[in-house]
Amino acid sequence: MTGSEFLMQFMSGLTTAMIYFLIAAGLTLILGVLKIMNFAQGGIYMLGAYMSYTFIKLFGGTNYGFWLTLAIAPILVTAFFCVVEVFLIRRFYEKPAIYILLMTYGVLLVTYDLARMSWGWIIKTAPMPPMFQRPFEIFGLFFPLYNVFLIFMGFFIFFFIWFIINRTSWGKIMRAAADDREMTAALGINVPWVFTAVFGLGAWIAAIGGALVAPMAGLSADMGVEAGIIAFIVVVIAGLGSLPGALLASFICGEVQAFGILVLPELAIAFMYLVMVIVLIVRPWGLFGKPVIIK
């Protein structure tokens, strides 16, 4: 294998990693702050993709149409899921975990059929914006420009959430509410709305992940199921709720996938699971998680 082929494969792995991260980051945030598992996350991602498909088509597949879509479509999906949070999920934060698990599963099923009803059965794909229809050259190698954009967006989303959580007063409130609800409420902060905001932010990230994937992949209602599993595996490897962990886990999964298929192509389907098995046996609480062992 030559150096340039190595670099190509590495960049491919990075693209995969960023898609994994975009899918899993929202779930990580929700897990970390709200301490709930959101099965509907895959459904949000799928709706984000379908919604972008509609808007990109609406704007005629132009460049500015693509930017407008990125701004509008995820927000619409987020708004819908904020309503879901307020009416269906909010009241169960203090109840046993099983209720929210099952509730979000129910929401996932409804989302799935809603997409089939609204967009029909036939698979879809959004046109690639013209500005990305050329290669990007580095060290004499060519990559699709969109993949480079995707990698950039992955890092951008990471720093964006990291900044919100660690460097803004909003983030402080979120962290406080996650640590101690009652104390935060006693300080006069409307905790339920903080939670809705966190849920909304998590949904927005998943929806934007879907929106970014829409021009480069085929869309079907089932894409959410696959995405849900990817998000799940990434957060397990990362340690529940750790954002840097999710980035690292995505990176490991992506690169293991990219180089693994060169050596053992017939195991392509299993690499993510293999990484998960190793992590579960060595560090059951994940790479960046805190041990939560109870005697």
């Binding site: 897990l31 301490k35 046993p96 975990a97 698990l101 799940f232 699971y273 059951p284 109870i294 005697k295």
Partner: peptide, 26 residues
Amino acid sequence: FSIRLTGIHFAILTMGFGQIVWAIAH
């Protein structure tokens, strides 16, 4: 591996192992 955990952690760990068994069978 999973019984020492509770709540959401237990759910996720059991689901993780379940998926591994599924992947092997598949």
